[in-house]
Design a protein around this nucleic acid. Structure first.
Lengths: 244, 244
DNA sequence: ATATAAAATGTTATAAATACGTTTAATTAA
DNA sequence: TTAATTAAACGTATTTATAACATTTTATAT
């Protein structure tokens, strides 16, 4: 017996992917298209975040995991529940009402929003949902209040990136210091001195040099590193350094 | 016409109050008592956070503001929405089910949890809800999953206190540097060198010395300061200092 | 006038951040 | 084989911040 959905509670996932080749921070969106029965004209045709309503027997985190698995095939992704969107009018514009009716959920749905971090190339974009990557600064027309949700997710990501080791989640397991710096520069929108950045990062005990270098590059290949979450958690002393 | 409540969505408020006289970080709780009709024996008798279900026409923030106004008579309190509690079994123990039935809400309610910061003495504890302060480390028997909610709120407060100017919310408008240090020490559970703390804080431009000293003390009265949110926001340059 | 007690201040050593140019090493072209 | 190319990798001096520690100041009470 299939579990029932809770018609007024959903989860939406802002999936951030970092494309290391183009140095672009992207968001994964799916198309929302609704055509009338007798015509080919789409009454709704835009993009939205992947989301779904919570089932009666699920926690909110489980809903998020289910949605992510469905879209990407992946488990154990880094995710953060960063805000709740519960404005009574958030789904009250015409297209959203039509959509809610066609999908049988309440247009007084509150959504619990997560953001997810991964490297773009781990996602199979040939899934049945036909997801597409868009640079976070060049988004298409978005349905519901998803423009706002993405903006808030990005603001939260910028803030967290400064104090938590989450940028590693956007890179492959093996990365160069340059890759890491590029990721920071793209996310924060700033330039960083490469000498100071390098010195600072390679002295961290949880950033570990591998016995391996880049292959297939036409110039001096660079050293590969990995991030050790274990080491990080061990040496993470709560420093109690007040920094206001 | 009274607005309808949404029976499965609520807000709970962890109200933190700092008692400057006893140097104690407290949580404001209300009693939850349910007596059977024919007897004086209470079937439910414990403490809970103040909360309430969301109305159809409210945002989540408005629900929180309404709940806070109702309990404390106050507006414009510092509040942060820090997590959502949506485990399907979170209200499924016997007492909670009885309570949910008596109050006509769903025992599959998800709650959006906020914490609030204020000095204890701004709250009139003689309100009809008879709220009581308990030290955060000596809480009474708690209903629902409120023990867990408070623990997570406190963890989040500790973290935010290190990087955001929120400790001021726990003090009166005029405070001494000693008051500020005491608040930090209590919240973080650490001792801080007063010479270094004082130097660091009084050099901040948003901590402003007033033309005023403590009165009614039997020893050298100390200088009073205020926190200027305006100045803070003006000089708050996003420093982009990576600190992982 | 003196005692009291908390408020307020100072110095030195170490560590971290910033601002800069130069050297190194692997690949590719001559 | 040698030289040119180009990104990777490294160094130093200056400034700023933190950490560790003891003494002086000042309003009130005696």
């Amino acid at each position: 017996m299939k579990p029932e959905i809770i018609p007024n509670i959903s989860v939406d996932c802002v999936i951030f992917g970092f494309d290391n080749a183009t140095k672009s921070l992207n968001v994964l969106l799916i198309e929302r298209v609704l055509k009338l029965e007798n015509t080919q004209n789409a009454v709704v045709n835009d993009y939205v975040l992947k989301g779904f309503h919570t089932y009666e027997n699920e926690t909110i985190d489980e809903t998020a995991n289910r949605v992510l698995k469905e879209l990407t095939g992946l488990d154990n992704l880094y995710k953060k529940q960063f805000n709740v969107f519960g404005d009574p009018n958030r789904l009250k514009n015409e297209k959203d009402v039509i959509w809610a009716q066609s999908e049988h959920f309440s247009d007084r749905t509150i959504t619990i929003a997560y953001y997810i971090l991964l490297p773009t190339d781990v996602v199979q974009t040939k899934s049945k949902f036909n997801p597409q990557w868009f640079p976070v600064n060049q988004l298409p027309q978005l349905g519901f209040d998803h423009k706002k949700i993405i903006a808030e997710a990005y603001a939260d990501l910028k803030e967290d990136a400064l104090s938590k080791p989450i940028v590693f989640e956007l890179l492959a397991d093996k990365f160069t210091i340059k890759d890491l710096q590029d990721a920071y520069e793209t996310i924060l929108g700033v330039e960083i001195d490469n000498r100071n950045f390098r010195r600072k990062l390679i002295t961290k005990k949880y950033i570990i040099a591998l016995d391996e270098k880049q292959v297939g590059v036409s110039k001096k290949p660079s050293q590969l590193y990995m991030f050790s979450k274990d080491v990080y958690q061990k040496i993470y002393k709560e420093s109690y350094l007040i920094n206001i």
